[in-house]
Design a protein around this nucleic acid. Structure first.
Lengths: 338, 338
DNA sequence: CTGAAAGCGCTTACAG
DNA sequence: CTGAAAGCGCTTACAG
């Protein structure tokens, strides 16, 4: 119960409580000798300031809220890990806030006044606050940065989704593919810009090569392996099936490859597959993919937020690059096209 | 800045601050009429109690610390999701505490006095506190429950590791395998009982069938896909290579299958592979595996901790069952054995 | 069933 | 450079 409090330390070191507070927090206007003595006494007594008292008195929580739509997801894990690393070093606690459905959303983002008392700022992972939510957050004086999904009026760090999708498309085009399927997002928990950007980048790159994207070749895969599997099964039912497919995530791509295998199709001979992520297991699948720096997304987002909390500027967005990683799931089409 | 505080509410509803506090928290000894009025006024004014003040006054944080050795891992994600769901419903915040190396460990588990001021209890995922750490936690009055790794003297919820590993072994034995490799944990961040239990269950099941486990067939895979890959490569170098392998996680199993493929071996004809987890992507690999209820591990652990926080008993352990899921990565050995 | 008051352990102007 | 004091917003005996 380490019941030693600041008053005990003050008494033991023969100074006032105020001086102890200043000395321990590294504030100016404390003589070196005093500071040294106080620090010694405090450490000797095993004194740990009570964060709750500090929060109440100072109005700051030294805590950041990490808002995610779901925890058990590769992407969430990467981003969280990146964020945690920088927040911890900066002395911030990280509380997890899952914003999965309308209900939890109302209880969290909708309660900015309550939220503001538990965290100093928010990191929104792939979440786009509504107009109402923004107003609430602003009114509560709660700064936030967006990660993964961007917004012109909010500090955000994103990945070059259009560019990445274009890399995928061009890679397939160069191999000679013309009829290319797309496994996209679909009924994600909340709409955000990512699937749209990847779609746009993909379609544009095709257009630049003179290939018109056939919308019948697009299927939602819900960013899950099973969704990718089902999407691919649907695409394979067509008599005029694609010779290649771009999935907006590795998990969907892997599901898609599975579907092809079940239909007796060889990857890449009968079907080329490219994903997006460079998931830990992508190499084991030999999956060609667009690597995105998911951990960095989290660490950059956290740095950004810390900047805001220090009163920094904060507008603008950071765009992180993607990289094409060629493995064995892509190759030239078997028929026709050279 | 929702600056309305409890005093404002008291004034507006014509009662004392104490009464507002009681009414809003559902404490007894408040007349129904008063309670109703206070609640109405409070909600009308948009009053949100300040958790920091409540914590300071009551000495409780309504927060649980989730201690993990690493975030971006399938298992951690599952467990965290399970825990988060029940904690949120119970009104607890969840702070993430990463205990990766000695340093972070000292700063967190080693600082029980400080920890006790930010959380009411701890959920330790695959972490075994040292004797010193236990003493510190106890002295600080901080209850904890262990998840994934058990300990006789601590409330814990685990999976039937021995039983699960035995299921894997028996499945392979029934198929006719006799020379079976083992890809185990190895240099995990911190030792815990899980790898040992799985090894014991595996070896015992072999022994029961009259098969003596050849220790040269064991390689550490570090619970990662790459580790599994490397471990398998090493196992395949032997002239007397195994006809089957059991990996203690799906990620390692998938890495192992990849290694086999690169060496020109077909799964399962040349090599049977069974994993442990039933990872989201296991189906896409056609991986035979031992399914473990990872999410339930987290939710049960959280329930257990809430029980402790309510002053419940708390000793003993819960063991969750595993299940063999047969897919296509296992089959009879090609040569000799029937 | 209700209120007055002390207390939780800090931080922060304000004086000096 | 240092201290006395108010204040942060609650909870909790204690009286009544």
């Amino acid at each position: 119960m380490a019941r030693v409090n600041i008053e005990d330390v003050a008494r033991a070191s023969g100074v006032s409580v105020a001086t102890v507070s200043r000395a321990l927090r590294g504030l100016p206007n404390v003589s070196p000798a005093t500071r040294r003595r106080v620090m010694e006494v405090a450490s000797h007594m095993g004194y740990r300031p009570d964060p709750n008292a500090a929060r109440l008195a100072a109005g700051k929580t030294a805590t950041v809220g990490l808002c995610v739509t779901a925890i058990p997801i590769w992407y969430t894990g990467q981003v969280s890990a990146g964020a945690e690393a920088v927040l911890t070093v900066a002395g911030y606690d990280l509380v997890l806030i899952v914003v999965a459905d309308r209900q939890t959303r109302r209880r969290t983002l909708g309660e900015a006044a309550g939220l503001a008392k538990r965290v100093d700022g928010l990191l929104m992972v792939d979440i786009v606050p509504t107009a109402d939510e923004r107003v609430g957050l602003q009114r509560a004086g709660l700064p936030w940065v967006m990660v993964g999904a961007a917004d012109p009026s909010t500090p955000s760090v994103v990945v070059d989704n259009m560019g990445g999708a274009a890399q995928a498309a061009r890679h397939l085009l160069e191999l000679g593919h013309r009829r290319i399927g797309l496994i996209s997002g679909g009924r994600a928990a909340f709409e955000n810009s990512t699937p749209r950007e990847r779609r746009d980048g993909f379609v544009e790159a095709l257009a630049e090569a003179g290939v018109r994207f056939d919308p019948r070749l697009e299927r939602p895969g819900n960013f899950s392996a099973l969704g990718g599997y089902e999407a691919m099964m649907a695409l394979l039912e067509s008599s005029d099936r694609p010779s290649a497919v771009f999935a907006m995530s590795d998990e969907m791509a892997i599901g898609a490859a599975r579907a092809a295998a079940e239909r007796g199709l060889k990857v890449p001979d009968d079907l080329s597959v490219v994903g997006f992520d460079d998931h830990e297991l992508a190499f084991a699948f030999g999956l060609t993919t667009i690597r995105q720096p998911a951990t960095e997304l989290g660490s950059e987002g956290a740095r950004r937020l810390l900047g805001l909390l220090d009163g920094g500027p904060g507008d603008g967005r950071i765009v992180l690059p993607t990289e094409l990683v060629v493995r064995e799931s892509t190759g030239p089409p078997r028929e026709k096209h050279p």
